[in-house]
Design a protein around this nucleic acid. Sequence first.
DNA 1: TTGTATGCGTTATCAT
DNA 2: ATGATAACGCATACAA
Lengths: 343, 343
Amino acid sequence: MTQARPVTITTIAHEAGVSIASVSRVLNGLATRPATERKVREAAERLGYVPNHAARSLQSRRTGQVAFAMADISNPVYQAMTRQIQHTLRVGGYRLLLHSTDGDVKDEQELLDSLAQRYVDGLIICPIRITEEHLAGMRATSVPVVSVGWVGDEPPVDSVLTDASTGITLAVRHLFETGKRRIAFLNGPLDTVPGQERLRGYRTGLARVDIAYDESLVTTRDFYRADGAAMASELLGSTPDVDALVCANDMIAIGALDVLRDRGARVPEEIAVVGMDDTDLATMCWRPLTSVSLGSVEQARIAAAMLLDRLTADRTAPPVRARVATVPPQLVVRASSDPAVGG
Amino acid sequence: MTQARPVTITTIAHEAGVSIASVSRVLNGLATRPATERKVREAAERLGYVPNHAARSLQSRRTGQVAFAMADISNPVYQAMTRQIQHTLRVGGYRLLLHSTDGDVKDEQELLDSLAQRYVDGLIICPIRITEEHLAGMRATSVPVVSVGWVGDEPPVDSVLTDASTGITLAVRHLFETGKRRIAFLNGPLDTVPGQERLRGYRTGLARVDIAYDESLVTTRDFYRADGAAMASELLGSTPDVDALVCANDMIAIGALDVLRDRGARVPEEIAVVGMDDTDLATMCWRPLTSVSLGSVEQARIAAAMLLDRLTADRTAPPVRARVATVPPQLVVRASSDPAVGG
DNA sequence: TTGTATGCGTTATCAT
DNA sequence: ATGATAACGCATACAA
């Protein structure tokens, strides 16, 4: 195992008896005399030539890589999105770089800054908290950025949104129609984008069915399963007459179901549960979970496509303003809210 | 938004009135006169300098990136591993590149080959199918590779293993002790590494408790939930006296539980279910799932650490032979196999 | 069509 | 301590 010198186009040129320019041309499919092409290809094959990625990007100013940043890979929503993004990117010949920020603002900020190093050609980000620096950073990025989720009413970058308000409204109306009146809301942190959006959605939903907003029915913690359990316990203790739990995501809902199962509560007769994101979890858990689909996978698909579009866009063409795409929410009814539904 | 010329060390050198060599030295923390250092830092700050990643790797032959390749991100095992790997790598200052191969041999092969482009400094791979070319490719890689899972008795690369046989033996013994005698096995494809390993484990386990191997109790499909459901239906139809299902992973187990729930089977009294991998799913599903933990997260941690070690190893030091680490399996008993256990 | 020469942005090796 | 200069591997404008 001697430390062999890497094979470069110079090696090939030498071997084939041509110039490095010719080698480069052949390898890039430019016009060349058949004889030359043959010689080069043969030498390249024989030597097992592989282009050097760094050298190529230095010259071409492209890396063939795209980063996806989100709060936490262990959340099934992001997993599904990651999967979809990787799939779409692969078609465009891009590799995927994962970046899990743990919802840390500073980390996201650093990420945006580091983009200037150009180790990726573009970024898809699910912002969890938005600060002014954040927005400034997005406006000033050196590479195209696509945001999945709200980043201001005048988005500085392409973004793909969903209408959480409408989504939760669907859920609330559904619960109302099945006779529920004391509909609680288990939310994530209010200083996060999803947290705010979803609270607004909950209020809108209540208003639509003429139920007054009752502060004692709203509780806030983080987006994890344990938080869902804690919030559910708290609510059941403080407000025993709740008859429905709307949860800001499926993880929270699973946590709530944990508690309900422990207590032997009858779901949905006594208390109904609705999750959000409609992840795979919804069909696996104790009671199949009714969930508000925010079309995350579709959002991911669109985001990746938007980015690919930016990446392949003609650099000389006039710049295109930030675009916004929207994915409609959808309510998927299962047993946790409707006894008539099977699995 | 004019297409500004990027700020390079040349720009800084010019601005600070020093040579590019001095700039580079300051930026890399080498000895410099305080006055020079100050001038350079000031200029760099003012101009918003950011080093160019491609140029840096071209020169340094390092990318600061590591790839993780596995069959499918939507499998919770790989999610947990991904999370752990990213975590460990971050400490070493490396970024994570994800590569989901869908279990395709050709794709994995291409990946190994493409490593020669040096777009990453190393690779962690969970091989699903092993071919001769595969092994050859691993032996000949241009960058360090760590395998999570078996890659031959004379592993060509560092690898971290677990003892699936012992793991499944634990499960079988446990089932035997709770009175089960007709213990079926729901496996993944036999031409995969995990599929083979786990079948062997099942047979070993049976032998340990003196139960004869019965072919009609073994079924094989793929590793997904739908396959688990299909296999469970099949078994219940063909061999109604089964009283336990050992599943080759948690996804299969979930699928099996789907069927049992639909049929109103009493789990575990009538029929017990044991999964494998002990993923988060095990605590979420219909009946909390007893599962054989193969220590995947720990495996991932070790793999990442091993790789970091290779990456930071002294290149001039004598080469170290392939190392093998082993993580012990563990049985986590839950309600799906033991009525005495709560959640 | 082909070869020569230059640049991409860094780091590293020399002198000075 | 600092500056000129040569790599690193590839692509390309230009000359031949």
